[in-house]
Design a protein around this nucleic acid. Structure first.
Length: 271
DNA sequence: CATCGGACCTGTTAGC
DNA sequence: TGCTAACAGGTCCGAT
């Protein structure tokens, strides 16, 4: 599910309910997520106050007043919601953090590709090392993409989804950004010009920022922590629209697998 | 180092 | 209507 706009929407929905709150209890119903939930989550978190909820790439960090952090990734199907403390537990509700407000922060994830990990004070979790720049930061621009892409034969779509190059872009927003920039997703990353990378960086930035204002994309079941869906789906130009007319030229949109991910683009507008 | 295929797990949907 | 196969928003890991 969640690419950067959905994770950022989750963070913004969460923060007012969680920041400044004390964790009064932790319930681990299914600790076997993508990785086992480390013992520290159950042992250290109760009693701690959550000082801040941050996002890095598609990870959420809940910083405690002791300087350590719970590190959370939503995987493909993960969802975080803030609920009344007595809300009945569903089949895929794997973790609860009880808060001193009487509410519960609940992690739900049918596919269990998500993860909940622990980052001790003064350290950076190794999953966060080697990540590329934030796409909404000044460190990300066309020159960066151009420099990193030289000599690479992989399709530009795969390159754009590589979290070491730039974080936060997944299958939906890669397709949308390449359409906006007029670049074929199959083109070798090393054969895209500096000028076209400038257009691509701008498209990534604009689309992600706009999707955040729409509350992200709800394809099937994404809800923000207050239980509301996102509204970017209705703005999708190509993703999920294979065979339908290109919104720009009317030609049927092409669909194929690139890097083992479903891909849609306009062979006429994207070169 | 870059690239590719497989793996993780379950729910939904398309197709027969 | 029922069964099966394919597919889904992510990303790590090992082989090449």
């Amino acid at each position: 599910m969640p690419e950067l706009p959905e994770v950022e929407t989750t963070r913004r929905g969460l923060a007012p309910h969680v920041e400044g709150r004390r964790v009064t209890g932790v319930v681990l119903r299914r600790p076997d997520l993508r990785w086992p939930i480390p013992a520290e989550v159950g042992e250290q978190l109760p009693g701690r106050r959550i000082a801040a909820v941050r996002r890095r790439a598609k990870y959420l960090l809940m910083d405690t007043d002791a300087g350590d952090s719970a590190l959370l990734h939503l995987g493909m199907s993960g969802m975080l919601r803030v609920l009344p403390g007595d809300t009945p537990v569903g089949a895929h509700d794997h973790v609860d953090l009880a808060l001193d407000s009487g509410r519960v922060l609940r992690f739900t994830d049918p596919r269990r590709f998500g993860s909940l990990l622990w980052q001790p004070a003064g350290t950076e979790h190794e999953l966060l090392r080697g990540l590329g720049p934030e796409p909404l930061s000044d460190a990300f621009d066309g020159d960066w993409l151009f420099a990193r892409s030289r000599g690479r034969s992989a399709p530009v779509k795969s390159f754009l989804m590589d979290q070491r190059i730039v974080v936060g872009v997944g299958n939906i927003y890669a397709a949308e950004s390449l359409f906006r920039a007029g670049i074929s997703p199959t083109r070798a990353a090393g054969k895209v010009s500096r000028e076209r990378y400038a257009a691509l960086a701008g498209a990534v930035r604009d689309i992600l920022a706009y999707a955040i204002t729409r509350g992200g994309t709800t394809l099937r079941d994404f809800l923000n922590p207050d239980g509301a869906p996102g509204y970017f789906e209705q703005e999708l130009a190509v993703y999920g629209r294979g065979g339908l007319p290109c919104p720009n030229c009317g030609a049927p949109l092409r669909e194929a697998s690139i890097g083992q991910r479903a891909s849609v683009w306009c062979a006429r507008c994207q070169r």
